[in-house]
Design a binder for these strands. Structure first.
Lengths: 239, 239
DNA sequence: CGCCTAAATATTGTATGCAATATCCTGGTC
DNA sequence: GACCAGGATATTGCATACAATATTTAGGCG
């Protein structure tokens, strides 16, 4: 995808997730185009992308509407991610853990270990942990060589808070605890993969996705209590 | 989606699945547009849709290429469908089978029963069975009210032979047997749903997807042996 | 006053044009 | 002969124009 195109899609996605449109509201392409300072062409493309992500819907000759959208939908998407990643883990375990995959995962484990071992955890650490977490998951997914699986997971990742990397954004106690739990689960998952325990790997991976759900709850609660201002892509959780 | 737009996408998808392009071949929009008798605009839109389906890929300013694509990829997509539908079945069982859902499923069971009971099965029966099968699956999926799940499954359905309705296209012994197996599995799945047996429903539904895989194998074999000419969307299985 | 009808308006769907970028071809150099 | 530079060509990305289709509005009728 081209540069301008990508930016327009990202901006539009953020607008929708931020609640810039009422649920069910019709989107007129020309208005949106002038609002974003581009022509209708990239807007149209973007809307079609977002339709695939389920953020808008369209009818022939009648344009696009924004879909109603709740925090429950995000939670549902996390469930789907957990299920698909569980499948991925099972496949990897059953097919045998390839050496370079094992090495990549062990690298992730080691990084996590170092972060957890620290007494005081800085925001930078949390961000590093998130990056590592994303890589851990990505490594397992790509090890499957299953295009349909990757496509399906890519779809879920388009929703806010669903991608594994957004774990533990806060420097709160909850965030620390979630990191420690996640790290522990990573170790167990790796063990299952190494030993070819498919069913166990699947179950662990599924459960692992609940960490993201907990993070989602923490964020939702902190916003509702007015404790935090809502950064981009967060306002929707209050609706 | 508009009419012309939809047709172009469908034609293009069929062309790619039929092997009209070599794997990795670059697609020039203008050539394709004139070949299809439309302008570049709908072609561009269509290519972007197909990119999300994984049939083509794109790089900024460098256009689209068709993705290499094998029968294994279809099989993989069926696995993903089985996993997601298994999740759907589990959710329905856990949340409790709503009366109207149960009624719709029972209707499907009855139709299947009537078809199976016949001694000689006509092509029309096979087609009816496929339609019923599609409805059975759709009913369970929609009963979840999980958008991400529906979106993910929609994605897999874009691949040929993955959608449940394409079961048992042949009037062969294999086709009959597959219908009977599918019908039996439907009964078991319904039983599990009715009794709230989530894990059982999930396992059954997952296994149920293998019927599609068997059908895929039958079709693949019959084409390789030259026994059948390849209808649209079938030539790819020989590659 | 409500409802139907039809013109006026707005919006989408498609085609086309132009600038930016990539690809290819030609000629030269080592 | 292989490799590199630079211009010619082709292709993409975006904007705009126009036709087809929806939506709105105004007016007439019961």
């Amino acid at each position: 995808m081209s540069n301008q195109q990508t930016r327009t899609t990202a901006r539009l996605r953020e607008m929708i997730l931020n609640g810039a449109f009422a649920p069910g509201e019709r989107i007129t392409e020309s208005a949106l185009a002038s609002a974003l300072g581009v022509s209708r062409t990239p807007v149209r493309l973007s809307l079609s992308v977002l339709e695939r992500e389920g953020l808008v819907s369209s009818e022939p000759n009648r344009g696009f509407r924004v879909e109603a959208y709740s925090i429950g939908d995000i939670s549902d998407a996390i469930d789907v991610r957990g299920t698909l990643e569980g499948m991925a883990a099972r496949l990897v375990a059953e097919d045998g853990l390839a050496p370079h995959t094992a090495a990549a995962l062990e690298d992730c484990l080691e990084i996590g270990e170092r972060i957890i071992a620290k007494r005081a955890i800085t925001p930078g650490d949390a961000s590093d942990f998130g990056e590592m977490n994303g890589r851990f998951h990505k490594t397992i997914i790509e090890a499957c060589n299953n295009k349909a699986l990757e496509n399906g997971l890519d779809l879920t990742h388009k929703m806010p808070f669903v991608e594994p990397a957004v774990i533990a954004i806060h420097d709160t106690i909850d965030g620390q605890q979630q990191m420690m739990v996640a790290q522990h689960q990573h170790r167990l998952i790796f063990d299952a993969l190494e030993n070819g325990e498919g069913a166990r790997a699947e179950a662990l991976m599924r459960e692992h996705a609940n960490v993201s759900k907990q993070a989602l709850n923490v964020i939702g609660a902190s916003i509702e209590s007015g404790e935090h201002s809502a950064p981009p892509s967060l306002r929707l959780v209050t609706s």
